[in-house]
Nucleic acid binder design. Structure first.
Lengths: 333, 333
DNA sequence: CAACGTTGTTTCAACGTTGTAAACAGGGGC
DNA sequence: GCCCCTGTTTACAACGTTGAAACAACGTTG
């Protein structure tokens, strides 16, 4: 067991509280005492017991990051930034995986498996705005990557509608006319899928082009591959596809290439997320790059305000930046 | 703030300790009392305060998983399994990123940023066996993915030497004679790189073939791409490459394809890790698939034994299974 | 019926920390 | 010599929890 304040106090011949004062940088400590205490501190390699400190202060210094799945590259990359942003506040991050399942998301909202955490950053998939509003748990909450307008909790996200419109416009700008959307979800009332679909539709409508929509159940490569195969089976296969995320796009790319089609010559392909895989695939993948560091920083920031701020200020919605990154899958070499 | 045992006790008209007994499933509590208490518990939505419990018990129910980087797919996939395995013990997992930097790994070994955790699973990159042996911190430690024989801490890993030999044998078995290794590290005394290199050498020596070794600094796609470019610049470019992990292989594949070479016709390519990307790349990637779920389960298991077991049993080394997965990058369609 | 074990419950102290308030020392000013 | 002020240090209590020990009520046993 590590040394406690008491051990230091004994060694330095002062009271426990004086040691505590030194540790916390309290101003009114005489230089002589401070020196004595610091000597003792380093001699016994003192490390504060956070359990005790937190018990006393009512904080744990731990937040939870609840994601659908850590092994989806977008979330892994995002997690890195969230952990880094939290580290600056000396917070630790525990990761919870919901698998996008409703009952797991619910359980997160009710408390992270009975542990107390100071706050939760949730990337919701299944849960709806109404259920969020009805939540009773008082733990600070920030939603990430979804944007339910006028929702019941703080939000960070990019403008999904506009981003989707931008990508679609880019594809149309290449002269493609049979532009399909890949990644809609059948029963999704909330989440990003409807927003991205809306953006696609706006762009298509603006140019008077017919819409083609392929649905998936999960945002995974295999689903992208299967949905692409389905699109190819249609009477009028697309000459461009906007996939609602990069994983879907990479799955779709695999189907296209192994069907002997060329990307982008036969079918142009674009995704959204800017995961690293897309920068090294052949061809490299055109995509929308959300500013992940900014998303993470804002999420942690909002959480900090929730945790430290006055009890209940109205929920905030903050947008993060993104940019369209054009690569070989739409431009060619 | 949440309700405490005292609040429950007051509401149920019993002592605090009785409530504690109910919460902890202590046997000798009368059904009537238990019912009363449970009613109160759920009415106030009681959640134990872990800081307090941990202060009292010296346990936190939280372990740390320290990885080089969460956004490397192998580690992201592994994390998922570690989190799942820990969840079965009702442990939470905080994730720390070392970026493979020595001083960060050191800091992890000295304690996870002053927070107390019950144990640490570390995937070491930079730190050496000697330094591990000299560690003073008493927190339970399990090393993951490296195998320092007779090292000072518990280990889990696949047999890297044998796995590397298997892959190399596979490439040689295709009839290739200029088989290169990509992924050695210049100054690595420990870690997996020397082991994989050793396996490669064994196989090459067994067939009397000349060795070609390309080094990298980090196991990332860009480094694989660059190292492959360097190999192509040599007098006798390879006709097969064993990359020490899949990311390197995917980077190398990008270089090969954009140089107009065909995989596997001109250059066969194999990796190690079996990350999902390799199952959807074009061509799909031949690789060694470590049993990640088993690795994770064993790591958590070893940690549990360390935490709960007698003070200092000798360190254990446990091997996990793997299998060679042959795909298009060595076989073709 | 007295001694004893069992079951159910409570009291007490302690884990390591810090906020509050109070004690203490030294230095002017009167 | 007394008082007040400032700077420094301390004692105490409390955060929420649980192990140890004590206690009360009961049924069993010799």
């Amino acid at each position: 067991m590590g040394a406690s304040l008491r051990d230091i106090a004994r060694l330095a011949g002062v009271s426990v509280k004086t040691v505590s004062n030194v540790v916390n940088g309290y101003a009114h400590v005489s230089p002589a005492t401070r020196a004595k205490v610091e000597e003792a501190l380093s001699r016994l390699d003192y490390r504060p017991n956070l359990s005790a400190r937190n018990l006393r202060q009512g904080r744990t210094g731990v937040i939870a990051l609840a994601l659908p799945e850590l092994d989806a590259p977008y979330f892994a990359e995002l997690s890195r930034f969230v952990i880094d942003a939290a580290a600056e506040l000396r917070w630790l991050v525990v990761i919870e995986q919901t698998d996008g399942r409703l009952e797991r998301e619910r359980r997160i909202l009710d408390g992270v498996r009975d542990h107390r955490v100071d706050g939760v950053i949730l990337s919701p998939i299944a849960i709806g705005a109404d259920e969020l509003a009805a939540r009773t748990d008082a733990t600070a909450l920030v939603l990430l990557g979804e944007r339910i307008h006028d929702g019941p909790a703080d939000h960070v996200a990019i403008d999904n509608v506009r981003a989707a419109r931008d990508v679609t416009e880019h594809l149309i700008g290449l002269g493609r006319t049979r532009v399909a959307a890949l990644g809609a979800e059948d029963n999704a009332a909330s989440g990003t899928a409807p927003l991205r679909l809306a953006g696609y539709r706006e762009a298509m409508a603006a140019h008077g082009l017919p819409e083609t929509v392929a649905t998936v159940e999960r945002y995974r490569r295999d689903q992208g591959a299967a949905a692409m195969a389905a699109l190819l089976g249609r009477a009028e296969p697309p000459d461009a596809v906007f996939c609602f995320n990069d994983l879907l796009a990479l799955g779709a790319m695999r189907t296209l290439l192994s069907s002997g089609l060329r990307v982008p010559e036969d079918v142009a392909l674009a995704g959204l997320d800017d995961i690293e895989d897309g920068r090294f695939s052949t061809p490299t993948l055109t995509t929308v790059a959300p500013d992940k560091a900014e998303l993470a920083r804002i999420a942690v920031d909002l959480l900090k305000q929730r945790i430290e701020g006055p009890a209940d200020h109205p929920p905030k919605e903050v947008g993060a930046g993104y940019r369209l990154v054009v690569r070989e899958s739409t431009l060619g070499r």
